[in-house]
């Protein structure tokens, strides 16, 4: 298995872990009893903002740890640059990831149109962000294994 394939798998697992742990920590804090929309908006705003920041920081740390372990176990250095194959696969993975997020975004807007509660819109939006991340990692793994 190549460096890029291993990295895609690590990225996928870390995305799943970060999201699950964060969800288990933050979702019980949802202000169920409060009717004030300002409090609810504050909750969802901070939910998304903190998730984004935590996710970026965790991905950086996991990537550094992965590179150290990769060097120690294989005795090889990780590729220092992205060549034309990497860039092409990145583009294809981004396309799939973007399509997933846009679908989720439209679904979230649709939930507002059919008069669903605001909570549903935010849950769909967050799920779309998570699934788009997962789609990107799976696409990378698929293209590196099957070719482009």
């Amino acid at each position: 298995m190549t460096y890029q394939e291993k990295k895609s798998i690590v990225s996928l697992i870390s995305t799943l872990l970060i999201f699950t742990v964060y969800l288990l920590y933050r979702y019980p804090q949802y202000p169920n009893e409060v009717l004030d929309s300002k409090v609810t908006f504050h909750y969802w705003g901070s939910f998304i903002l903190v998730l984004t920041l935590v996710s970026i920081a965790a991905h950086i740390v996991i990537s550094i740890v992965f590179n150290i372990i990769f060097r120690m176990t294989t005795g090889e250095k990780e590729p220092a640059f992205a060549d034309e194959l990497d860039k092409r696969i990145d583009l294809l993975a981004f396309r799939n990831s973007f399509a997933m997020f846009v679908s989720g975004f439209l679904l979230a807007m649709g939930s507002l149109v059919i008069d669903q509660p605001l909570k549903v819109m935010f849950i769909v939006l967050i799920a779309a962000g998570f699934l788009s991340d997962v789609t990107g990692s799976i696409s990378r793994l698929y293209y590196y294994r099957r070719g482009v």
Binding site: T2, P79, E84, G147
Partner: peptide
């Protein structure tokens, strides 16, 4: 040729068509 070893692996396996320049 200025690519990573993984790209040469992909080329040899027939998993990738290189750019004209490569």
């Amino acid at each position: 040729v200025g690519v990573t070893r993984q790209t040469i692996v992909a080329l040899e396996k027939g998993n990738y068509s290189p750019s004209l320049e490569l």
